[in-house]
Design a protein around this nucleic acid. Structure first.
Lengths: 200, 200
DNA sequence: AATCCCTGAATGGCCATTCATTCATGTACT
DNA sequence: AGTACATGAATGAATGGCCATTCAGGGATT
């Protein structure tokens, strides 16, 4: 049946354990137990503990980036694109809550390898937002006094913080759709060229 | 001369070291060296490593919360209040970049004591934003279809992410004022009752 | 019997924490 | 003033526990 290979199994287990305990207090033996393999087996598939974390990033985030980019290519209107990005991001984080937690916690750590990953691969992902905004500005849809690099951070920061709603089960449950709508309700109006700003 | 007591000195040193290396890879001896005291001295003032981190939170963040609340009490208009909150937050984080980094990294860790702190003391701070929004809605200034708890997260998330601009020196230098203006340009328009939404 | 994959106990290094000792200052007595 | 003793803050070397990593061996499949 489950021929699901060990590499994949370990990645999944590690994601869960890192989410629950954090990278540094997670023990290799925890991951091994969760993946139902021996401690030593992990070292047949990964070089060390860090390598596991980086693999979680590379592989799991990779999937998300790919599918998001694919969807975006099917759409021209930057307003629609922004909607798709937000909706996709929130859906992904909801579906894979352990990954969401790991990203939120570990991607910020000030360690060389993590920074490197963040500044290369991951920044491409958030860069998509800046691109959408630039595009919208070119088309006269978004206000040109906004810096795409700053707006990108506002939007990504908002999405990131909102994903925590589920994981920490803080506010009484909102659905992904509700949250998406709220984000867009704020940002689309916030960045669009408005009647009043045209008049002014 | 500098009668600056040891407790304070250690807190400052720890903030710096935690920011640079992260809580888990920071060694007590690093903090001791930075504070120019012996390793053992630290244990005369703190129970353990965790206790140092929590004290950093409590004391340093405490100051920020207090001064922000004070300023807000002087103002009635929720739009102005939101402006003050954003501006204050960004200024604080710019002024104390080590604290900013520690907050961004460590406040998310999934450990009991940190969660506790976050869910009690710290959430009061972000709660201020929700309060401002509720107030604005009551006064008919902000759109009532927005959930204050979600809008709060959008705004705090945006501020938090933006504070990283300086620490990571990512984008070419924006000033605090520029960033504040951009945030407000997006959010104020994003949440305000607009001519078009009134007409619609 | 050779190859492969896996196992988990043993190793070794790291570092938070402890505590015996030192040192500086204060007080009391002559 | 000088000597003797007391106090407790500060020190930093030593301890002990933890856990990532290794590796000698076991079992399956060819």
């Amino acid at each position: 049946m489950k021929v699901e290979n060990k590499h994949t199994k370990i990645i999944a287990a590690a994601t869960k354990v890192f989410a629950k305990k954090g990278f540094f207090t997670a023990r290799i033996s925890d991951i091994a137990k969760e993946a139902k393999v021996a401690d030593g087996t992990i070292y047949l598939y990964f070089n060390n503990k860090y390598d596991i974390l980086l693999s979680v990033f590379e592989e799991e985030v990779g999937k998300i980036v790919e599918s998001t980019e694919k969807l975006l290519r099917l759409e021209d209107d930057p307003r629609r694109q922004l909607e798709i990005f937000c909706s996709q991001h929130l859906h992904s984080m909801k579906k894979n809550r352990y990954l969401a937690e790991v990203l939120q916690i570990e991607l910020r750590q000030p360690y060389k390898l993590i920074k490197e990953y963040r500044d290369t691969t991951f920044s491409k992902y958030t860069g998509i937002i800046a691109e959408i905004i630039r595009n919208g500005q070119r088309l006269g849809l978004f206000r040109t006094e906004l810096h795409p690099d700053l707006a990108k951070r506002c939007i990504f920061g908002a999405l990131d913080e909102l994903s925590r709603v589920w994981n920490a089960s803080l506010e009484t449950n909102y659905t992904v759709e509700e949250i998406t709508n709220q984000v867009l309700a704020i940002f689309l109006i916030g960045i669009e060229v408005t009647r009043s700003s045209e008049e002014g």
